[in-house]
Design a protein around this nucleic acid. Structure first.
Lengths: 200, 200
DNA sequence: GTCGGTGACCGACCGTCGGTCGGTGAAGGA
DNA sequence: TCCTTCACCGACCGACGGTCGGTCACCGAC
């Protein structure tokens, strides 16, 4: 398996090249404004090559999305799992997430365009992304501990994810992302501390 | 002004017809899957007529969006302003908002597609919708009362709006919207009560 | 070595769809 | 009555996502 045939290595390289160029374009111009022809031209390839590797534009975007998201998911999960206390874990995870929002690639691809591109699919088929399961993992100990009586895990996860995205958008749109990040942090703290105080 | 020329009335009727048809199509198929030609054909008009009234597809969607949103905004504001206590006002407003999420038109146009269509514009120019000002109005008394020290109004509004959208999405995707609505309500209650208890 | 199969890649072509533009006929003021 | 205005027409355009038959280097089999 480590020894790959020439063809195989070449194909993989081409695929990665395509993803790299696509990522650059998607981050810079957004999904809709990026043309497949443009990507192909910059990669020095023909259209057929692109469609040989990716069934359509959405699939290409998904590949970029996965890469960008993975870069963040690891950090978030690590930050959360490093904490013993469930509340501290939630706080650490959220903090790591907000950190990620400072990166242009994450903001544009994951916060803005992913909804545009993948909402339709999620709407029709029940497919869901990676963030929701991630949040569930972090929130499960909280709900299981009985700290939040009468709260459905999924309903909470959705509200929390939405709140995070709202904060992310606030940071993304701000003239001074760093300052906005601090403000969002403060708000998060108040909400978290409030809920915690009222239920334990 | 009340007496309108024939031409004027006819034009207005045409415009409303287009918005009506467009709304029907957008709600049923979503933004991307709806073709301008289809709208025009169903309206029994020519393409030029559509583009005489709306500069492009986004503008047409915006018109539909405004109508659908207004139907809700009034209810939300009324519910919120009917309450004396700021906390009760917030709770009532949120409740009215979740009610609106049970309506297909609101779910599809405002919750799902509006992000798709209008995010790009909001990203480039700082244009913002109607929801954010609405939330600010409701939240201002809270922040002004000093109940939430160190909290920036805008940061809070963004987080709250995001949380609401998350809950809305949860309701929209659920097999049983009514039950999901109740769950979302419970979560909202816990969060609100928590924050309130911790800060007053 | 050579030969046949495989598959990565090519690039001309297509259908769709958003958007344009010169025209037309009725409304309505002078 | 004439002339301007404008809502509306519909053929046309160009961009873009996606297709498909073809090509040629690679690779395993004999």
């Amino acid at each position: 398996m480590t020894v790959k045939r020439l063809r195989e290595r070449q194909a993989e390289a081409t695929r990665e090249l395509l993803v790299g160029i696509a990522r650059e374009r998607f981050v810079e111009q957004g999904y809709k404004a990026t043309a497949m022809d443009d990507i192909v031209q910059r990669a020095g390839l023909a259209k057929g090559a692109l469609y040989h590797h990716f069934s359509n534009k959405d699939a290409l975007f998904k590949a970029v999305y996965d890469v960008v998201l993975d870069e963040t998911a690891d950090a978030v999960m690590a930050a959360a799992l490093a904490e013993e206390d469930p509340w501290a874990a939630v706080r650490a995870g959220l903090s790591a997430f907000l950190d990620a929002c400072l990166r242009p690639a994450f903001r544009r691809v994951v916060i803005i365009d992913s909804v545009t591109v993948m909402a339709a699919r999620a709407w029709d088929s029940g497919t869901e992304g990676v963030e929701l399961p991630m949040l569930r993992t972090v929130l499960t100990p909280l709900v299981a501990s009985g700290a939040l009586p009468g709260v459905a895990l999924d309903a909470l996860a959705h509200l929390a994810l939405g709140g995070l995205y709202g904060s992310a958008l606030y940071i993304a749109r701000a003239d001074d992302p760093q300052a906005a990040r601090a403000e969002a942090d403060a708000v998060l703290d108040v909400v978290l501390r409030g809920v915690r105080a009222a239920t334990t």
